[in-house]
Design a protein around this nucleic acid. Sequence first.
DNA 1: CGTGAATTGTTATATTATTACATAGCGTCC
DNA 2: GGACGCTATGTAATAATATAACAATTCACG
Lengths: 159, 159
Amino acid sequence: MSDLPALAPATKHNHARCVRDALDTAEAVCARRGARLTALRRHVLELIWRSHKAIKAYEILDQLAGEIGAARPPTVYRALEFLMAHGLVHRVDSLNAFVGCADASHRHDAQFFICDACGTVREIDDVTIGRAVSRGAERLGFEVERRMIELHGRCGSCQ
Amino acid sequence: MSDLPALAPATKHNHARCVRDALDTAEAVCARRGARLTALRRHVLELIWRSHKAIKAYEILDQLAGEIGAARPPTVYRALEFLMAHGLVHRVDSLNAFVGCADASHRHDAQFFICDACGTVREIDDVTIGRAVSRGAERLGFEVERRMIELHGRCGSCQ
DNA sequence: CGTGAATTGTTATATTATTACATAGCGTCC
DNA sequence: GGACGCTATGTAATAATATAACAATTCACG
C-alpha cells in the first residue's frame, strides 16, 4: 500500500491537478467567508490531499514535524478543526482519520466508501441514500443533524 | 441525563425484562454456536444493557472495578471483542462506545439513530436504506463488507 | 503604530486501545 | 485420575488518539 495517489485505475487521474483544484477551492471558499486559510492550515490541507486515502492526525503531525521542525498535537487538531468547520475536510470516524472533501464548494450530504485493501476513500452524495435515511428518521420521529455513513469493503480495483 | 433506561417515553418499557431477554438471547446464541458466555462476558453484556445508551469501554471498566475489585483494559476489550464477534453488541464508531444489539438472534444490517440530547441509541434495520446503499455501491463497483450508518440528532422526546 | 482578536506555540494530561507475557480454568484422551 | 492442550483471564507496560490550559505571537483594522 503506497502513499501515492490511490484511485480507481480506470480513472485517469492527474493528481497534481486534483490537489491544485482542492486548494483553489479552499482558497475560494475561505475568501468568500472571510475565513483565513493560513499557511499552516493550507499546508495541512495539502498533506491530506497527498492521496485519496484517509490520513491520521499523527501522520500529519509526523510529516509536519519533518518539515517544520516542531509540531505538537494541538497544532494539527486545530488545523483539522478549522478545515472541517469549513467543509474542506471530513473525518472518517471508523478510521479515526481525515480525508479531503471531494466537493468543498457547497454543503452536501456524503457517504464514504472505504476500501480496506488499498485505503482509498471515495466520497459520494447519493440522494437515494439520503432520502432513505430521511424517511427512516421521519418514521421514528427523529430529527437528523449529522449523518455518518461509512461503508467498508473492496473497491473495484481491489476485488 | 440520568443513567437509567432511556427510551422514547411513549414506549412503555419494562427494562428489567428487556435486559433479561437480551441475556437470554445471548445465552441461546452462544449455546447454539458452542461459544462460552462466561460470567465475565455476561456481566459486561449486562452492564452494557443497563441502559439504551452507548457505554464507553472505560465506563464499563470503572463499573467492573467497583464490583470485582481489579479490572484492566484488556479485560473489558476482550469481553467486548467476544460480544461483538457474536453480534451481541455493536460498536458506535462516532462515539467510541458500545451498545447492546437490539436483535442478536440473527445477523442483520443496522442503522443507529443517536440522540445527542439524551444519549439513547435506537437501532433499526431499514431495508430501504440498505437497498439504497447496495445500489450506490453497485454503481461504484464497490463490494461492501461492513456498513456503518450512524445518524446523530434528536429523538422524538428531546426535540 | 497601537489595540484587540485570532492564531499558533508549549506543556501537560486525558481518553481510548493494544501488546506481550504470565496464570488459571477446563475439556478430553489415554 | 493425571497430563496435555486450548481457551480465558490477569497483569504490566505502552501505544494511539485527543484535549485543556495558558503563553506568545501575528494580523487586521482603526
